[in-house]
Design a protein around this nucleic acid. Structure first.
Lengths: 367, 367
DNA sequence: TTGTAAGCGTTATCAG
DNA sequence: CTGATAACGCTTACAA
């Protein structure tokens, strides 16, 4: 009765161990032993079983297997939004490692909604996953409780005690700011991410530190808080460009916000880097192919995924070490969104310069 | 023995229906009936059961459920490479629909390798998925056999008889070419995708047709075959730029190749759109924020995912109509990578013009 | 309306 | 070394 609609879709009788056992003329237990190598089996029988498996194209049912073992070969992965261009490479890194070790990935998007995160977490549990990989949502409240091993990536939820893999946000931002300073800028603004996110916080701190080390003070208005998306990058930049004096350089805490900043700059009829320099964080390869290639702190997303997946797998296979925090190095990639600035009193001194084709043209024009 | 390493990770005794039954003082069958509404249950008992479920935080085990029903709430999704920036929005569209209907997504990357595709297909089967959503690999040999419902997206494998959701590749390319022609170009080249891919083939055909309709002949050398990635876009463009006469406009069959084309153009010390116009296909939002926003045929990736997921769900719930082919409309988004071209004999006539800030500057300079 | 029990496909224990 | 069998957690037919 409740069955009527279902016959339609039921897979047409998959091959089971029983059929393998039957065609190989052995018992079902023996088949299992052959497959899992749990007990040794006489070579002759082994071959018969293997043959039957090949002939019938048998694939063990992962559900019954998982049910029995109380654990599947599924890795649950939770990301804020696969549509954010930084995450796909992370996911890909995870998937590659998972695949090599014959784990499969269930992917969930939380939209940075802690509610949705919890809900996903719960129903991932009901698949008895081997482990969980989580890029926490903005206000995430997860904790490592009991349950399958979990590793957090990219961001660290408040109060999180478990394993973590992140990039060197503080140091990366520090280098970025130092580069801007070295290029002669003094009026330097930052568009940070949401500060409840550890990575956003660390980037802001690294930035501040570099300015402090160079004895440059920061006008509080030069610190704008964005949300890691284009719209907020745009809005923050509009506010910055209206300031007097206007900053000569902006550090955007991710590429999406830098792209938004670029739109604002264009809308103000200014050009980057001639009128305003921009350095961003992420270094998505897509930002290097536009006419104006962004100078950026590159973070190795794919490696981030691989590393986290490896750590998780080691936990899955019983690694009981205390929780680790792995920090991946970033790299400042100098392209052409930063121009050298020569303050009046320094004219004539040699200062490193970087220009793109266009700014060169304009200088010729002025000459 | 084989157990020693496993206790480590076993989830600490999840709550089961038995415990719910026990604490609610009913039988296990009744609990099931409450949860699934399969049989009506006296209100008082119902409340007791619901209470117990809430209190203990019970989540039904999806494995045993799936095992029993011979079908899970998993949707398997196979994509060539989540790292290709067109796919994340498709995946996201799928995931949103799946989530709303309480299905979960297992994601697999084939790297356009038909081998890997088959292997994934097989082991997705062993999870008894409710359905499969597939963006076929380049040489895909899949067929709709028996098994759970399958829907193909974006590309149609050769000989595929099942459901399909694609965008209007032919028409989109036709419009793109028409736009280029309308802007006065006659020497128009195309960088196509791999032609075993239906979408690549259709785009090429649409392009050819537009030129034929305008009585413009195509130098065979103006037709370059890329692989939908940046590197091939770059290589094809290098070949095109060396041609004499050089094309004045290029239609790139996707954004990634257009980005590669842009690099090549820059390397030849040419500028787009002044020296060469470019139109591409995809319209990823990331291409509109660079200084040079790409004029492109926008394809609705997110909608593609949603539509395919909806179709799949309808199949899952028993829709037995003959296989459908759904074609989603594209939209030409005119930005500023195409300049109007005035052939000598037309100087003085009015021709629609589009320029970006830079080309305007250069004209001032010349004046 | 409710309880009981069979069975989904595995793995693992225990006899033989 | 091999075969029979219990158990994993759930749904559902059937009996009460």
């Amino acid at each position: 009765m409740a069955n009527n609609g279902k016959n339609t879709n039921s897979t047409p009788a998959r091959i089971t161990m029983h059929q393998i056992a039957e065609t190989a003329g052995v018992s079902i237990g023996t088949v299992s032993n052959v497959i899992n190598g749990s007990l040794s089996v006489r070579e002759k029988l082994r071959q018969r079983v293997l043959g039957a498996i090949r002939n019938l194209g048998y694939q063990p049912n992962q559900l019954s297997r998982g049910l029995r073992l109380n654990r599947t070969n599924i890795i649950g992965m939770i990301v804020p939004d696969i549509t954010n261009p930084f995450f796909p490479s992370v996911v890909r890194g995870v998937e590659d490692i998972a695949y090599e070790n014959s784990y499969r990935l269930i992917l969930c998007n939380t939209d940075d909604d802690p509610q949705k995160e919890i809900s996903y977490l719960n129903d991932l549990w009901s698949f008895l996953p081997a482990g969980l990989l989580i890029i926490p949502a903005v206000g995430s409240t997860i904790s490592s409780n009991s349950g399958p091993p979990m590793v957090c990536l990219d961001r660290v939820p408040e109060g999180w005690k478990g394993d973590v893999v992140v990039v060197a946000n503080y140091k990366g931002a520090y280098e970025a700011a130092k580069h801007i300073i070295r290029m002669g800028h003094r009026r330097i603004a930052i568009i940070s991410g949401p500060l409840h996110l550890t990575n956003a916080g660390d980037r802001l701190e690294g930035f501040r530190r570099a300015l402090r080390d160079a004895r440059i003070s920061i006008d509080p208005e030069y610190v704008q808080k964005g949300r890691f998306d284009r719209a907020s990058g745009y809005a923050c930049t509009v506010r910055l460009l209206r300031l007097v004096p206007r900053p000569t350089a902006i550090f955007a805490a991710n590429d999406l916000m830098a792209l938004g900043a670029l739109s604002a700059v264009r809308e103000f009829k200014l050009t980057c880097p001639d009128d305003i320099s921009i350095v961003s964080f992420d270094g998505l390869d897509i930002t290097e192919f536009s006419d104006l290639a962004l100078t950026a702190v590159y973070q190795p997303g794919y490696q981030l995924g691989r590393t986290a997946a490896r750590l998780l797998l080691s936990r899955i296979s019983g690694n009981e070490e205390p929780a680790r925090k792995i920090v991946l190095a970033t790299e400042l990639k100098i392209r052409n969104s930063v121009a050298a600035l020569r303050p009046r009193h320094q004219r004539g001194k040699s200062v490193p310069r970087r220009q793109n084709a266009r700014s060169r043209k304009r200088h010729i024009l002025r000459a």
